[in-house]
């Protein structure tokens, strides 16, 4: 069964490592790659396909422009934007309204990713 590919673009590093560890512990998920810079992320996704991307922007901005660009280029992609202190996660998907979840736990993140598989 194919694994769900997750691309990471999160900071600070400790949080990024925690998310990576969470994904790698799941038998049906895989970290497709990790980049920091938003431009690099756009380029990386053109080369390495992913089902989900998790981004933590430096500023607490729930609607970064990068989302629009990524969803235009990859209509099936699910974008998770985590605020820097993880107070909130925003989920973006082409053709769906933005979802906002407060204080996401590990399980919340996994549930959002798993949901991708069924669509």
């Amino acid at each position: 069964m194919p694994k769900i590919n997750v691309m990471l673009s999160s900071r600070p590093k400790l949080l990024s490592e925690v998310i990576r560890n969470l994904i790698e512990r799941q038998p049906d998920m895989k970290v497709a790659g990790e980049v920091i810079d938003p431009i690099e992320l756009i380029l990386a996704l053109r080369i390495t396909p992913a089902d989900v991307v998790i981004i933590t922007p430096l500023k607490a901005n729930g609607d970064p422009r990068i989302c629009g660009q990524l969803l235009r280029e990859h209509p099936r992609l699910k974008v998770l934007i985590l605020t820097p202190e993880s107070e909130m996660v925003y989920v973006y998907q082409s053709g769906f309204d933005r979802i906002r979840i407060e204080k996401p736990s590990e399980q919340t993140i996994l549930d959002i990713i798993m949901n991708t598989k069924e669509q």
Binding site: L14, S86, P104
Partner: peptide, 14 residues
């Protein structure tokens, strides 16, 4: 830590 995600992750990793 009030960052639930980080808290749970660090608990597991440590």
């Amino acid at each position: 830590d009030d960052n639930a995600l980080l808290l749970e992750g660090l608990e597991t990793m440590l």
